[in-house]
Design a binder for these strands. Structure first.
Lengths: 110, 110
DNA sequence: TGAATACTTTAGTACCCACTAAATTAAGGT
DNA sequence: ACCTTAATTTAGTGGGTACTAAAGTATTCA
């Protein structure tokens, strides 16, 4: 487990915020995340996920070749609420709804 | 004024955290801050203060040649509480008491 | 006016870390 | 056994930024 200040540094990175946002309420595959973020390679996402994993900020559930990631909001303490509030702007709300819908469609389809 | 995510990045820097800690409850001169932090130049501190100023995270009160800085806790929203909690460990408490005492002595002396 | 003090700004450097590409590991499917 | 897919890891590069040193600004005091 990391200290508060370290968690702050990890969370301050915009890419990692984007990743956390994508696995905030629903779990997602590492590949889903890479695909959802434009202009980034799978490798880069995997590296960020490692940082988040090492800090205990995400949970991983292995299922065969797949790894389902999910944010560990509890590990972020009060910062979890902060991030959630940052993402709670109107535009961001719409974006998250669209993403949730997209995920659902993908699930029922595959 | 900056957005939440930007504030997060600014606050994540360890040096800036140190600076904020020094001007958290009491105002201090830019020079006091530079002197209080080992292994840093006045110039570097001044640059950090500019970043904090531009983000509205510190107040400045000019008095002649002097500039009294003080943290603007309100501007940090919930992050203010977070930082305060990070600094509330036992050792950190003692350190802050010692610093406050040092400031008081300096004030009554000069 | 000139020197000293308090601070800021500029120019230039060094380091850190996020990134890509490619190699590697691991699990299925055929 | 071999190929494909999912993800990680490694090696190497580039951009951003925190830093120092030095020049610049502003204020006080003699």
């Amino acid at each position: 487990m990391k200290r508060g200040a370290d968690v702050l540094q990890i969370i301050a990175d915009p890419r990692r915020q984007e990743i956390l946002r994508l696995v905030w309420d629903d779990e997602a595959l590492a590949g889903d995340i890479a695909r959802a973020i434009p202009d980034i390679t799978f490798g880069a996402v995997s590296q960020h996920l490692k940082v988040l994993r090492d800090a205990g900020l995400v949970h991983v559930r292995r299922a065969g070749r797949f790894r389902w990631y999910r944010a560990n909001q509890a590990a972020m303490g009060p910062l979890a609420d902060f991030l959630a509030s940052v993402w709670s702007s109107h535009l961001m709300q719409l974006r998250r709804l669209a993403e949730a819908d997209e995920r659902k469609r993908r699930r029922t389809r595959g």
